[in-house]
Design a protein around this nucleic acid. Structure first.
Lengths: 222, 222, 222, 222
DNA sequence: CATGAATGAGATTTCATTCAT
DNA sequence: TATGAATGAAATCTCATTCAT
């Protein structure tokens, strides 16, 4: 059972996330956040040094909540093609939730502009999240080449960069969409776009050559 | 010769862009913008209805400034592969300038959250910019397939989506970089990443099959 | 034919009166006044030293417009009772127009608070208007007493004060009324209230004793 | 003991009244009011929504402070003539204080011009104050007629209207006076003017017929 | 004399933060 | 540790006035 203060901290972060999502960081009022969290303003300041620190914590907490890799991804006994599919599916799964809260991240940029310490904390964490992805991805690619299921001429680094770029790009564009978003910028779009990328990596004469990679198939979820 | 008031408007937009880039939208002061533009605060408000309207205008004006396609792109007598290369080069050319001012766009999201009219103006313009890119790209791809220089099994729509997603993703990530950015998130990275994408599209048995596409080569600039 | 500049001055005063009546002095904008008058703001300042001076001039001009005594009032060959009736009718006639613009006068008080010169100009003019009324009224009362048609025990000064106080009081209260004003605070109310006052002054045993004074009757307009 | 916040509210209202009396509403600065009230500007805005709301509250509070009827007025066992005298004395007593702050009311008119809600609040309260006076007055007059001490032919409604009109008119004119006001527009003037009005109402053949009503006499204060 | 774009002092108002209780 | 009334620095924006044309 988490201590009571952790619950309170969590309530504050959730309230902050909600209020910022509705009104934007600038328009979010500490009063409103405290009210929604069911605490007083004084308590807010016991947990977070200020509005800025609260925003950073909220952004990082949001990432923690949504960045969850499916179990297949890290399991290096699986076929690397299935692991790629599982990674793509992991990203697709969290896509809409992340997209919805991406605004928060955008706003964090401006806030940290003039605050080197906050900047380091935010960038550091985000970079480490991306590093994690990149390492995982590169190791899967390397395993795929080694096992002969991915094309040997792949530039692992470029492909990893593009994989993440496609994901980020879709996420970014999702923010442009309104009530009826273009399907290209939804979870389904992530599956399509990363599916296409995976196709480009496959060797064409293996036993699985004409099998279409289906990132939704059961094996992924193993 | 543009009328004098256009010059003044431009000076204000440039000042706003600079100040926001340095301090962020929230921290940018109308006083400071007026001062840098060499006009009084009153004049600022004669040209723009308020801080919010000024931000939107600044973002749009920044896009206008940097989104310039090289002449080869639209020239449909050229080899479609060269046109793709020219398009990639166009995006690479503007990349760093756009990346530097991307912060401004991020901030614009929060500002327009509570202002439907501003939201429409901003999203509408951005969407039309993206539509333009997408149409151009799709028509080049179609021409390439028709002429037999691009693979006939290409899903034009998916490729176009991914092209733009890669560009946006690199742009987005460039914002994470600091003094010594990862080369993947520079103009050179754009060339590499989009170059890789173009490679995936080429038919492998043409006369140019083993020619490496060099998006920097002279023909692009024709 | 008045010189052209007098017409322009008059147009400005009328525009100022209208705008102030609609929005109040504070909310009235020099821009709007200039626009309605069909002149530029610069011209406004050629005619009036500033907003304050314009208000004073507007108030005084409004009084000039509405304070018109019927001819019978000053005619000392008429029966004093008829002259009183004519005076009452004069006040009743202008009542609604004055009441409508009384707001302007109210606002003038605050404006002149900190400007002794303006204060003198405004108060001086108003006092002279009131003095005129008072003198006229007192001379009619004296004539009435002398001729034996008004009660000899009248305190001329008190009656004159009350006459004007009743008029001012009705005017003041008229400002409280809205769409359907209490008839007591309309031109008809002025006739009733001053009619009552006149009744109190009459000697009760003259030939006209039981004649009801009708301030509307023809003789008044002679 | 009133709660502390009521004291603070009262301090703010008093400060607002003083500052507005000195400088007028427009020229009054929220800074100055806060300073005089000994609170911060923020606190001012915790108590009143804005400058406008503060003005309305100040005007109404001023009326509440000065409109006090002497006990004899409502006591219907007294001689109606004494009750009238007591009412006149009540008005005379508050006269100078009200006159001094009348400026505030004048300014309130313009402020509420463009704010229907504020207008309703201000007009409603003022009308109810006047209604109270009118009802009291009419009931005294009726009692006087019934008891045979006032003339039976009195038109109660007209007399009540004129009573209040005289009071308002004197109040209004008092605003024109400067350092040495005409005695007609002072508390003494109110006594004289309303005393005259009362005289007009008396039956002339009662025991008290030739007693001059003296509104200062002891019985009034019972 | 007329114009109206430009000015900038100064107003109201907000809201993150504090601290006595 | 929790509270929330009080704070006051600092922001945006207005608009009477000016003056080059």
């Amino acid at each position: 059972m988490p201590p009571r203060s952790d619950l309170k901290r969590q309530r504050i972060l959730t309230a902050a996330r909600d209020v910022c999502a509705e009104s934007g960081y600038e328009a979010a009022r500490m009063d409103e956040i405290a009210h929604r969290a069911g605490v007083s303003k004084g308590t807010l300041y016991n947990f977070f040094a200020g509005k800025e620190a609260l925003l950073i914590a909220t952004v990082l907490s949001t990432y923690q909540d949504y960045i969850v890799l499916l179990p297949g991804v890290e399991n290096d006994t699986l076929d690397p093609r299935d692991r790629l599919a599982a990674l793509a599916e992991s990203l697709a799964t969290g896509f809409e939730a992340i997209a919805q809260h991406l605004l928060l991240t955008h706003q964090a940029w401006s806030v940290v502009l003039n605050s080197p310490a906050a900047r380091q904390e935010l960038l550091g964490t985000l970079r480490s999240i991306y590093s994690g992805y990149t390492e995982t991805l590169q190791s899967i690619l390397a395993a795929g080449i080694e096992r002969g299921v991915l094309r040997p001429d792949i530039d692992i680094s470029v492909v990893a960069t593009n994989w993440l770029a496609i994901y980020d790009g879709l996420l970014y564009r999702a923010g442009f969409e309104e009530d009826e978003p273009d399907p290209a910028y939804t979870a389904a779009g992530v599956r399509t776009s990363l599916g296409w990328l995976i196709q480009q990596l496959l060797v064409t004469d293996t036993a699985r050559a004409d099998e279409k990679i289906d990132i939704d198939k059961e094996s992924v979820r193993t």
